[in-house]
Amino acid sequence: MKKFLLSCLAAASISGAAHAATYSVDVTATPFRVPGMAGLQTRAVVLSPSGPQNFNGATYSFDLTNAGDSASMNIYGLVHYDGPLDPDDLIPRPSTATFDFGGTIGSLTILGTSFGVAGAPASALATFISGIISIAPGLGIQITLADTVFGTDGTSFVQGRAGIGFVKATFELVAVPVPAAFPLSLTALGLMGFVAQRRKSRKTAA
């Protein structure tokens, strides 16, 4: 019982210590691309102007040590191949990205939307909701994707790479509140150990 309690306490203390590590994550993108359906048709493309145009996934690595440390990088680009901006292009459609850390960490999908923006010049915008993936008790990586403008060269609404927008991801090591049940379970285990010890002492005395 004592050894078990010590191991639980050690796990609970991880969040307060440095957690130096190099993280490797596979990133895939799923923009809205359903020809003939209302909404801005988008495509994820590789960052380099050479080679295959479609982004079929890539692996990125970064180092994080202490809570508050962060790393940022462009991970893929967004373009569109519609003609002039139409009213139905203003309808928000899903544009998501999945981050797979593999092993015991798993994967996290960041939800977002993309849509046309009327204006001078007209453009397209992708917005995302940040998320946190747990990497250890009391510790997680928060993934934030910055809002991305694409489909414009700054003066007009354009198709293809002339209007590319880079999707930038920020990975931050953050403290994650331990579920309330965990401290309570430690307290319960402590009480159980105390009661067991007292019973043992009474039997020995008798």
Score class of each variant (00 low, 15 high):
181 A>G: 07
126 A>M: 03
104 T>G: 00
127 T>W: 00
18 A>G: 11
24 S>P: 01
51 G>S: 06
93 R>D: 08
63 D>R: 14
69 D>W: 01
204 T>F: 08
200 K>R: 11
86 D>R: 13
46 V>A: 13
21 A>P: 09
67 A>F: 00
110 I>L: 15
193 G>L: 12
180 A>P: 00
75 I>M: 07
153 D>Y: 03
196 A>S: 14
166 F>G: 02
145 L>W: 05
155 T>R: 06
97 A>W: 01
14 I>E: 09
40 L>Q: 05
89 D>H: 15
194 F>C: 10
43 R>F: 10
130 S>E: 12
78 L>D: 01
87 P>Q: 02
163 G>S: 01
118 A>K: 13
67 A>I: 09
108 L>Y: 06
72 S>K: 10
87 P>M: 00
200 K>N: 10
169 A>W: 05
16 G>S: 15
54 N>K: 10
181 A>I: 14
100 D>P: 04
20 A>V: 05
161 R>C: 03
195 V>Y: 07
162 A>Q: 14
89 D>E: 04
164 I>C: 00
2 K>P: 04
34 V>I: 12
112 G>P: 09
188 A>W: 03
28 T>A: 11
70 S>Q: 11
56 N>E: 14
116 G>F: 01
16 G>F: 14
60 Y>G: 03
186 L>C: 14
65 T>H: 05
50 S>P: 00
178 V>M: 13
62 F>Q: 07
41 Q>M: 08
165 G>N: 05
205 A>M: 06
141 I>M: 05
198 R>M: 10
43 R>V: 09
172 E>L: 05
83 G>P: 07
176 V>R: 03
122 A>W: 00
126 A>S: 15
24 S>M: 01
164 I>D: 02
203 K>R: 15
191 L>D: 05
164 I>L: 11
16 G>I: 07
7 S>T: 13
61 S>C: 03
204 T>D: 08
190 G>S: 08
127 T>G: 05
146 A>E: 11
193 G>T: 14
49 P>A: 02
50 S>K: 07
184 L>S: 11
158 V>A: 03
20 A>G: 11
77 G>Q: 09
95 S>A: 15
64 L>M: 04
191 L>Y: 10
49 P>Q: 01
36 G>H: 07
19 H>N: 15
63 D>F: 13
30 T>L: 15
156 S>G: 09
152 T>K: 00
108 L>Q: 08
77 G>I: 02
5 L>F: 02
195 V>Q: 02
135 I>Q: 06
49 P>M: 01
18 A>Q: 12
204 T>W: 07
95 S>W: 06
97 A>G: 14
60 Y>I: 06
64 L>H: 03
159 Q>H: 04
52 P>C: 09
81 Y>W: 08
22 T>C: 06
75 I>A: 04
47 L>M: 04
154 G>H: 07
38 A>I: 03
111 L>S: 13
82 D>C: 12
88 D>T: 13
156 S>C: 00
113 T>R: 10
